[in-house]
Design a protein around this nucleic acid. Structure first.
Lengths: 112, 112
DNA sequence: CTCTCTTGCTACATTTATCGTAGCAACATG
DNA sequence: CATGTTGCTACGATAAATGTAGCAAGAGAG
């Protein structure tokens, strides 16, 4: 039940414009994808630990996302078990790490 | 049919951890949210122009996302019509603008 | 006023994605 | 052998997205 051969060319769903930014936006715009990358940002987690970290999300989606992220080359399954970011995945994580700071600023805008 | 009073406190769905980064990740992790922000990054678009830009996504979801993004304070509807980014929204866009560069690098990793 | 075109926005039936529970085989420890 | 991990999957129930159609309000033309 292989999902797709290459998520860099054949985009995740919807917009198949060919532009890599769209494929990336599509991939990240799926539920739990951003969250998974975030939780893996500085730790290697087993599938079950990841599930716990992700608010007990259903393993069905988690596995699906994990497969896509592995295909994309962002996440890998270590030999002794446990998921972790690849160098490329870590690079991607760095890219939207400023989101954390922004989120704090965002709350203070009107949330109290 | 107001969705929620404040997406900074009452998270979009699923994970209600209270941490603003989670609320933000949840909001951005919904279909079309990232895309909408991206398409609005340097242009004010009417709802229909946005729909065209977003690969003819259904107006139902687009309106829903637009409402959420307006509540979040990222997007606003101009007086003469047309959606645009607020200063805060522009700020958020800047945050993941490096994603574009990353996407290009990503493709070149093994895509050809 | 009427006809036309655009704006933002919505209804509703169909399709797709996600949830939640349960369970599998493989491997290890005792 | 039993117990407890690991990654991963099946499947019915529920929530979300799609696609088509259409609404009221406003602007401009005749």
């Amino acid at each position: 039940m292989a999902k797709q051969a290459d998520s860099r060319k054949r985009s995740v769903r919807g917009s198949r414009s060919g532009r890599p930014i769209m494929a990336l936006l599509d991939l990240l715009g799926q539920r739990w994808t951003l969250r998974i990358l975030w939780e893996l940002r500085d730790a290697t987690l087993t599938s079950r630990a990841l599930r716990t970290a992700c608010d007990e999300a259903s393993p069905t989606v988690l596995q699906a996302r994990l497969s896509e992220l592995r295909e994309a080359g962002f996440v890998e399954l270590g030999e002794g078990g446990g998921y972790g970011l690849t160098p490329l995945g870590r690079d991607l994580c760095e890219t939207f790490m400023p989101l954390h700071r922004f989120a704090e600023r965002w709350r203070s805008k009107s949330g109290a």
